[in-house]
Amino acid sequence: MHIEIDEISKQFGTTAALNPVSLSIPSGALVALLGPSGSGKTTLLRILGGLEFPTSGRVRFDGQDATGLTVQERRAGFVFQSYALFRHMTVFDNIAYGLNARPRASRPTKAEIVRRVTKLLELIQLPDIGPRYPSQLSGGQRQRVALARALAIEPRMLLLDEPFGALDAKVRKELRQGLRDIHDTTGLTTVFVTHDQEEAMQLADLVVVMSMGRIEQIGKPQDIQARPATPFVREFIAA
């Protein structure tokens, strides 16, 4: 799905989290929103997911105005920073949650839900953890379960907030490839937020560098590295 962000701004009280920003994300791209904390990257992601609403500007999905769509109507697979798995449910129930939440008319049958959850568990290469609780999983496993749960709703796009933030270096590298693979198999337009420039450069097709609620530069990783547009970008990617 093609996502278009048109002059989006966001005020929290008197502070501006986002100055008007515009960005066009081609269908099927893997995009990184890169910047230090307070740069507005998470706010932008939450606006795409419908968890936050912009003060001004429009969002368009495939040319259709989506600014007023509720979080449920957006059908965005969202992976939260600390994964936000439902702690009182098993991994199976976590992944099945979105399917069970559908209105009766469009809800898959029990057998179909089992089939889909099983398939997703295979996709994240953890076929046997269905009966476990989130507290019994490692950080990396939790992240993959969160990804499977987001994919279960057959989302129109995938949004990830610091998906590798809470993991150690080795697991992080493995999961980076995992995300790349899942993106390539599903073909979903994917946006992830990160403060790690190496992660953004290695993983993304398109990198959006942000600072202080503004977009500093948009480009392919190699272009940004070769020709940083502003002193901030030069400094940030050198760090």
Partner: peptide, 21 residues
């Protein structure tokens, strides 16, 4: 609020989120 937000992004209504999460 993260778990509630997760439920909403998965398509659950506010009421359902309250009862199930």
């Amino acid at each position: 609020r993260a778990e509630e937000e997760a439920a909403l992004t998965l398509g659950a209504s506010g009421w359902r989120t309250f009862w199930t999460v």
